[in-house]
Nucleic acid binder design. Structure first.
Length: 565
RNA sequence: UACCCGGUGGUGUAAUCGGUAACACAGAAGAUUUUGGUUCUUCUAUUCCAGGUUCGAGUCCUGGCCGGGUAACCA
């Protein structure tokens, strides 16, 4: 149980924090933030960022704020503000009373913009969007200065006021920072910092018709919150000089350090908001919480645990190497490791094959005790009813077994877990030749599953008494995509072409042991020899739990069989 | 090719003044097992290249090579 813990995983960001702490750069203070834009659902890539930000703060006795980066009212919505908070809490992190919104700072942000104008470092530009792009130049060619670049401070102040008061139309003009049109970094070629958007904001309503751009709002929000380490993904690398420029020009007291890391890519799924949105809109999945989705809502509905996701985020590490692909098997291993500890074991026959014990007395019912979790004796025992007609797994019988198959076959003896040894004597088929029933005998001398004469069997099967079984639906989930990296762009090929047609298999009329009749939605079980399953919180009804497969058990036999083919 | 970033087993990471290249997953073999699960043991496999400094280089220096990011009034 108590394996020696691996050394606390470290990463280059922790190195930076430790060297800052050693030099006293922030007075030993550590303050991070997780800054989602409320325009979509969180996915496992966000979980990496959440674990990094909250985890770093926790490791060094600091704080981590939740701040919504809600500077674009056109794409954002309260629906997401709520789902994001629920998802972070579910993952196991808490921002306590530090829930912030960039929109809370709109007044101050506006004042900073005014200050920048007064400093002669920002101007109102009437170039059209197309013209701005054209004037910006290209990656190789320098840009050229806007004809509006040298307006007086007074004129800029007046125009900016008119923008704010709604006197100017959208797209009529913008406020730009006055930096350097010849900068080798295009981000620094007089970036737009405020634009007119006559849109109602989910928090500030119609108070504003100008909204700050990310680059302007983000660094200043960090500064206002006295963030020490502003951790973000690699795509903001080129924006860092702008982040620093704004804070330097405005001479703010708090100047956080932006640090970029590589976002997560997981095999056999996609992570981009756009692609996930397509899956939902095209009805290729049932919604944002479809158990096959990499969204936190999907993973939760699937039955993945927060602890497993946290372990996963720890195991994959943090670095700056781009375009890496983490094998989804790592996630699956984390889930198995967590669930193995506490999931209660039950017998579930997914593809039932009827077995009649010809020598078992009609009407007799035996009761056997079995452990709820061999990993945890404290989980106790439960009773299983046993009778003349049973179901076993279709897969557990082969009429003509290969040499390494040691489950049931004609003339062969196996153990029914905790019950008896049984021997197959007769195979009953229907007109089409399909096996519909096995006629077997049981050995009363093996009650409990051990032979008094010491003879051994090579296999132990799970089983369910037909008369006592609960019939219900079980959904087997598999990877959404067959390709390792479906998100990798290839011309002429849509990521949707790689969708796995077998990502969902719904099994009806599965036979489960009677104890699950009372299974509560949101409970995890291990179906013996199958995998971990979760009682679906949405589709289950009283008396009829519906199960989602979280992940299969390792199956070395199936693997060997696959390798043979 | 303007600027920026990155290159360590199959994959993801670690190696903290330059000192035995390690951990996890994946893969292989075996032991245990009333789950072909778990657990345990063992194995396979790694520093982009070339020079230089050094007793010693994944790490430092020089020069290459390769890959990627960036030109929204998105974040």
């Amino acid at each position: 149980m108590s394996k020696p813990q691996p050394p606390t995983p470290t990463n280059f960001i922790h190195d930076i924090v430790e060297s800052d702490n050693a030099s006293g750069k922030h007075g030993g203070r550590v303050a991070t933030r997780f800054p989602p834009e409320p325009n979509g659902y969180l996915h496992i890539g966000h979980a990496k960022s959440i674990c990094l930000n909250f985890g770093t703060a926790a490791k060094y006795g600091g704080t981590c704020n939740l701040r919504f980066d809600d500077t674009n009212p056109v794409t954002e919505d309260v629906e997401y503000v709520e789902s994001i908070q629920a998802d972070i809490h579910w993952l196991g992190f808490d921002w306590q009373d530090r829930l912030y919104f960039a929109s809370d700072y709109f007044d101050r942000l506006h004042d900073f913009a005014v200050k920048l104008i007064q400093l002669g470092k920002a101007y109102v530009c009437h170039l059209s969007p197309d013209e701005i792009r054209e004037y910006r130049g290209t990656l190789q060619k320098p840009g050229k200065e806007s004809p509006y670049r040298n307006r007086s401070v007074a004129e800029n102040l007046d125009l900016f006021r008119q923008m704010r008061e709604g006197k100017l139309d959208e797209n009529a003009c913008v406020l730009r920072a006055k930096i350097d049109m010849n900068s080798p970094n295009v981000v620094m070629r007089d970036p737009v910092i405020y634009r007119i958007k006559k849109a109602s904001h989910h928090r500030t309503g119609n108070k504003w018709c100008i909204y700050p751009m990310y680059d302007f709002a983000h660094c200043l929000s960090d500064s206002i919150e006295r963030i020490t380490h502003s951790i973000c993904t690699l795509e903001f690398e080129n924006n860092r000089p702008l982040y620093d420029w704004i804070l330097d020009e405005l001479k703010v007291e708090s100047h956080p350090q932006q640090i970029e890391f590589a976002r997560l890519n997981l095999s056999r799924t996609v992570m981009s908001k756009r692609k996930l949105m397509q899956l939902v809109n095209d009805k290729l999945v049932s919604g944002w919480d479809d158990p096959r989705m990499p969204t936190l809502a999907g993973l939760r509905r699937r039955g993945m645990t927060p602890a497993a996701i946290r372990t996963f985020c720890e195991r994959i590490g943090v670095a700056k190497k781009r375009d890496t692909l983490v094998d989804v098997a790592v996630l699956e291993d984390c889930v198995r490791e967590d669930l193995n500890r506490f999931a209660l074991r039950i017998m579930a026959v997914l593809r039932p094959l009827r077995v009649v014990l010809t020598n078992y007395p009609e009407g007799q019912v035996d009761e056997f005790e079995t452990e709820n979790n061999p990993e945890d004796p404290a989980a106790g025992l439960r009773k299983l009813p046993f009778s003349k007609v049973l179901y076993i797994e279709e897969d557990d019988f082969r009429e003509d077994p290969p040499a390494d198959f040691f489950r049931l076959a004609p003339g062969r003896e196996v153990r029914l877990k905790q019950a008896y040894f049984i021997k197959c004597n007769e195979v009953v088929k229907d007109a089409s030749g399909k096996i519909v029933e096995l006629r077997c005998t049981y050995d009363p001398e093996t009650k409990g599953g051990d032979a008094k004469d010491g003879r051994k069997v090579k296999a132990t099967l799970h089983w369910v008494s037909a008369a006592h079984a609960v019939e219900t639906d079980v959904r087997l989930y598999d990877h959404l995509f067959t390709k390792e990296n479906p998100g990798a762009e290839e011309e002429g090929v849509s990521f949707k072409d790689a969708l796995n047609p077998e990502s969902l298999t719904t099994l009806r009329l599965c036979r489960l042991e009677s104890s699950v009749r009372a299974a509560k939605p949101g409970t995890h079980y291990q179906f013996l020899r199958h995998g971990y399953f979760f009682v679906d919180p949405v589709d289950s009804t009283p008396g009829k739990p519906v199960f989602n497969r979280v992940v299969t058990l390792r199956d070395t036999y199936a693997k060997a069989e696959r390798a043979r083919r």
